[in-house]
Amino acid sequence: MSLFIGLMSGTSADGMDAALVRFETGKAPELIHACGLAYEQAFSQQLRQLAITTEASVEELALLDRKIAKLSVKAIRQLLAEANVDASAVSAIGSHGHTLRHKALRSRRLADGFSWQVGDPSWIAEHTGICCIADFRRRDIAAGGQGAPLVPAFHQACLGASDAPRMVLNIGGIANLTVLGEHLSGFDCGPGNALMDEWCCLQWQESQDSNGERAAKGKVIPELLTRWQSEGEIFSYLQQPPPKSTGRELFNLQALGDQLDGYDAHDVLASLSQYTADTIADAVKRFGHSAGEILVCGGGVHNPDLMQRIQTALPNHQIRSTASAGIHPDWLEAMAFAWLAHQTLNHLPGNAPQVTGADGLRILGGIYPA
């Protein structure tokens, strides 16, 4: 039996999730305790802006690397205190860090793909006294893969035992879909909460549409949907078959290229919610099971308006929270990085080559001893 901690700062840029997970031979990973450390709104906005800007200074990026590390340490200490577990009992931390830029591989010949996460693992190891494993994506990229998504392998390990068709949909800032089964696949299917959160911040200085209440007040604007669905680079990505991965670099309001002045703010938000649901539904129809269960995790599961729009678009599927399968939807991604750390420390591969496009199975991450 061993304990691992997983840390996740996702594309929503709203906070740091920490999960304490127990691993025991022959058993599924077990969540012992979890907690979330919310970011201040100004910091969230800084992270979102850095995902699309080309003008950040080296000093700003270096300070951000340290700040994410310090917040990681704070989240770990809070987690251990709440769980009443000593740091010495934890084998390792799996830290995702925070992604500043993700550029998927366009050409294996040019080897031009990269993915960059901040959150200094040396600082985390030094100030927690626990071995930290980080930088999970770059080995997969070195092997010709996209470096993402990495969680489908974990989804298969924890949720792939169902005899019925099953998929896992994570709705963070970006939405990603895992198609479970004999032929595992997974990919980023487009926007999750990113566009809606960005609009809420611009219009109401709110980090998100709490419970989907604002979008539910609005009416979808068909002309906006038509324009968004035909936008060049975004359209090309949505039509591209897996393996594929993306980020805020592609899915942001600026990239949609619209002047939204003159429209009712709630109507725009309703349209963004519908656009998000449509891109998810289209990904399921094109690349997923034709029917069956879709288990949802991530912040989007708490948005009834978005969940209803997805269900309406996919009447042959049963849309439900991962809680129905025994895993809390808020902590599944953090658990995945505890699992990845466990794989690395035990010299086991963490990627799924059929998902990322890598040349084969690889042991992921760098190890930073305490």
Rank of each mutant, 00 (worst) to 15 (best):
D14G: 07
I367L: 04
A34R: 10
R166E: 01
T312L: 11
C132W: 00
M167K: 11
A56L: 09
G145Q: 03
G15W: 04
L79D: 10
T178P: 03
W116F: 13
A38Q: 14
A42F: 02
G26Q: 06
C132I: 02
D330Q: 06
A148E: 10
A164M: 13
L253Y: 03
N252Q: 04
N193E: 03
L260W: 13
D264V: 15
A265W: 01
H127F: 12
E30W: 11
M16E: 07
V90P: 00
E59D: 06
R138H: 13
A69P: 09
E59Q: 08
C189H: 04
S185Y: 00
S290Y: 10
Q208L: 14
S271R: 08
H302P: 06
F337A: 01
N84F: 04
D258Q: 15
Q208T: 11
G145A: 03
R309I: 05
G357S: 05
S271F: 07
G299Y: 01
E59K: 05
A34C: 12
K74N: 05
A75R: 10
L159C: 07
G218H: 03
Q117M: 11
E55P: 00
T11A: 08
L71M: 13
Y237N: 03
Q318W: 02
L361F: 10
R108Q: 01
W123L: 15
Q117W: 11
L79V: 14
E233W: 01
A56D: 08
E55S: 06
E59L: 07
R106W: 10
Q343S: 03
E60Y: 02
V296T: 00
A142I: 10
K103N: 12
L202Y: 05
S210V: 14
L64K: 00
S290N: 14
I174M: 13
Q274L: 10
E182G: 15
A153Q: 06
Y263M: 06
V220R: 02
A283L: 12
A92Y: 04
Q311C: 09
A89Q: 15
H328P: 04
L340F: 12
F337E: 05
C297Y: 04
P353D: 02
M8G: 01
G36S: 14
L295W: 12
L332P: 01
R320T: 04
P121H: 09
P243A: 12
A283F: 00
Q274D: 15
C297E: 12
L37E: 05
G357D: 04
L150I: 07
G357I: 14
